[in-house]
Amino acid sequence: MSLLTAQGIYAGYGEADILQGINLTVGANEIVVIVGPNGAGKSTAMKAVFGLVPIRQGRIEYVGEDITNQPPERMVARGIAYVPQEANVFPSLSVLENLELGAYAIAGDITPRLEKVYEIFPRLKERRQQQAGVMSGGERQMVAMGRALMIEPRLLMLDEPTAGLSPRLIDETFERIREINALGIGVLMVEQNARQALAIADRGYVLASGRNRHEDTGAGLLADPEVAKMFLGG
């Protein structure tokens, strides 16, 4: 079953269309990765899906419902969570306060949701009273992902989740993404560490100049010599 389908999307900023008719599909419980060179439109694609960039042409469906150009708050209400690359935590608030803000629209006791997040990110429980702004880059990324999980999403969208992290933390982040996906949450991810991301992906898309250039399983893209030469550094 398709969780998310984007067809013929043209979108961008001002008068310029960064995306030139791209297509994307995320199946239920899939990890789907978008890779490509800088300026390919990868992050714009994520923002267009989440309602942060206006779509001028095309259609986006989520579990069969048209969500084209709906505002982010409606996306969240439907179970879509988005973690941007930058400015993704409230630095002056504690870890716990950040997580609680993720569930601001949830009525009732959020303790079970917190415990689920702590199971995936034990370090956040240990440091729940610590101010998010003084944490390392990897820890802030955990906070941002944990806050997104507080809505118990069906689809988690991650924009460059390993940007600026050490190799050890990159490995740890990908492992947490696999754990999240194993809970039945679909993942759509833009990632600069393309080889590692494709290694855990069910499927991947290569974008270039705002267009689809290649689509295959993660393993298929890794094994494609043209993709390797043009987009994966050989």
Rank of each mutant, 00 (worst) to 15 (best):
Q192M: 03
R127W: 07
V49E: 08
P161H: 09
D66N: 15
E15H: 12
L149M: 13
G39I: 11
G51Y: 02
P71M: 11
E15A: 14
L99C: 07
E30F: 08
V89T: 12
G12A: 02
G210K: 03
I185N: 08
E86C: 00
V26G: 07
P161F: 09
G184D: 06
L158S: 10
E152N: 15
M145Q: 13
E30G: 09
G218V: 12
Q130C: 00
A197H: 02
Y10C: 03
Q20R: 15
G184P: 08
T162K: 04
R78G: 09
V117N: 06
V206K: 01
V117R: 08
L156W: 13
K116M: 14
G204L: 00
G210Y: 06
G137I: 07
L124C: 08
D159Q: 10
I55W: 09
V227L: 00
E160K: 06
G21M: 04
R127F: 10
A194C: 04
V49L: 15
A48D: 11
G186N: 11
D171T: 14
G14Y: 06
R56A: 09
G8Y: 00
A107K: 15
G102C: 01
L222G: 07
A105Y: 08
L96H: 10
G204N: 02
L101W: 00
T25G: 02
G146Y: 11
R203F: 12
R213P: 00
N69M: 11
G234E: 12
G64T: 08
Q129R: 14
R178N: 05
G36N: 07
S209H: 09
E97M: 05
L52A: 15
A223E: 13
Q57E: 15
N69P: 06
M189N: 03
P37Q: 06
L124S: 07
G51P: 02
K42P: 11
N69R: 10
G8E: 14
E160L: 10
R127S: 09
D202N: 13
R59C: 12
L156D: 12
G138Y: 03
P161S: 07
R113G: 10
V134N: 06
Q196P: 00
L19N: 03
A6Q: 01
A105K: 13
L24N: 03
G39R: 11
I80S: 01
T5K: 15
T68I: 12
D109P: 08
A144P: 13
V83T: 05
D216A: 15
T44I: 11
V26A: 03
G51A: 05
A81Q: 11
P84V: 06
E175M: 03
Q141A: 04
Q130V: 15
L198W: 02
P91F: 01
M145F: 13
Q196E: 14
N29Y: 02
P72N: 12
A144W: 13
M46K: 04
P91M: 04
A163I: 07
L183H: 14
I180T: 07
A132R: 06
A223W: 05
A11Q: 07
R59A: 11
L3T: 14
L165G: 04
I22G: 00
A163N: 05
S2L: 14
V35G: 06
Q20F: 04
I200P: 03
A81Y: 11
N69V: 10
M189W: 03
M135C: 05
G137L: 07
L232K: 00
G233N: 03
K229W: 05
V35A: 12
P37W: 03
P72V: 07
A201F: 04
Q130T: 13
G64Y: 12
M157N: 05
